[in-house]
Computed example of a mutant assay.
Amino acid sequence: MEQGFALFETPIGLCGLAWGPQGLVGAQLPEAAPGAAWARLRRRYPDAAEAPPPPSIQRAIERINDLLAGGRDDLTDIVLDFSIVAPFNRRVYEIARAIPPGETSTYGQIAKAMGEPGAARAIGKALGENPWPIIVPCHRVLGADGKPGGFSAPGGVETKARMLTIERAKTSAVPTLFDMDFSVAPARGR
């Protein structure tokens, strides 16, 4: 499989994937301006040609679309080319990939899982460099007390909040309408 990239429509806008012989090398979230997603992919992957996605990439596109439409696919078996990232970042991404749709974690919890308490800032930096947003769900990583933290993808924290809303993620201890049980109606007095 040669290097290539493709753009595709999703429920949140025009996204893109770039691939190479060892798997996906990048994912692109929607940009605000028309044509900007294409231009960004061309800049990031100058050796990649725009091409029809091979079957494995087409399946990844379908699964991403399902997730962005409210599905629960965790995308953990999509093959990523980890040779393009630093070993520390790879560890961060592997832990972040284990966060299921609708769940969240914190920078501090990832640091603890890595056995590196106090590395929350370095983890935030690694997530800011994430070449595979959505597939490595950096949007599911929050600051302490459910604060959104940063999000370097186009649209910033607003895009992060939108993706968490689609996944019906709980971002704080305060119950939401999704947490309430409406199956039993309260008894009414006469």
Rank of each mutant, 00 (worst) to 15 (best):
G115H: 02
Y45W: 15
E94L: 15
P117S: 10
A122Y: 08
S105N: 12
F151H: 11
E50R: 15
P54M: 07
P117V: 07
L127N: 09
E167G: 11
R72F: 12
I166D: 09
R90L: 05
V136A: 10
P154D: 14
G102I: 07
T159C: 05
A169W: 00
A144W: 00
A120K: 09
V184P: 00
V141E: 01
K160A: 03
P101Y: 11
K160Y: 04
R44M: 14
G149Q: 07
R97K: 15
I134M: 12
K160G: 05
M180V: 15
G115R: 02
A161G: 03
G128A: 12
P154K: 06
T159Q: 10
L68K: 08
L67M: 09
A48N: 09
G128R: 14
F151N: 10
P101I: 05
D81L: 06
V141S: 02
D179M: 11
G143Q: 12
K170E: 09
L164P: 06
A113Q: 13
A96H: 01
I99H: 00
P131K: 08
V92C: 14
S83C: 06
T165W: 04
R121C: 04
C138R: 08
G143R: 11
Q109K: 13
I123S: 07
A169D: 05
P133K: 05
V184S: 13
R59A: 14
R59E: 15
G102Y: 06
P100Y: 07
V157R: 06
N89P: 00
G70Y: 04
T176K: 13
G143E: 10
D77G: 11
V174L: 15
M163G: 00
R97W: 02
R140C: 03
A120F: 04
L177Y: 10
P148K: 01
G143F: 12
A169M: 04
E50N: 08
P133G: 06
R63D: 09
G70C: 09
A144N: 10
F82Q: 09
E62H: 12
L75M: 13
T76Y: 02
S105P: 06
W132R: 09
C138L: 01
H139K: 05
P54S: 09
V85D: 05
G149Y: 04
N65I: 07
A98Q: 11
V85M: 08
R140D: 02
N130T: 10
R162I: 01
A60F: 00
Q109F: 01
L75N: 03
V79W: 05
I99A: 00
A153M: 03
R168N: 14
G150V: 00
M163D: 00
G143S: 11
E116C: 04
V136F: 04
I61Y: 01
T176F: 00
G70S: 04
T165S: 15
D47G: 12
F182T: 14
G155V: 05
V184D: 06
V79T: 14
K147W: 11
P133D: 03
F88V: 07
A48E: 08
S172I: 01
M180R: 14
T176R: 12
I123H: 03
G150C: 01
R97M: 12
I166P: 05
R90S: 02
D73M: 15
N65P: 03
R43L: 11
A119W: 07
P154A: 12
R63H: 03
V79Y: 02
T106V: 06
A153D: 03
N130V: 13
P55M: 10
A69V: 06
L80Q: 08
R43H: 10
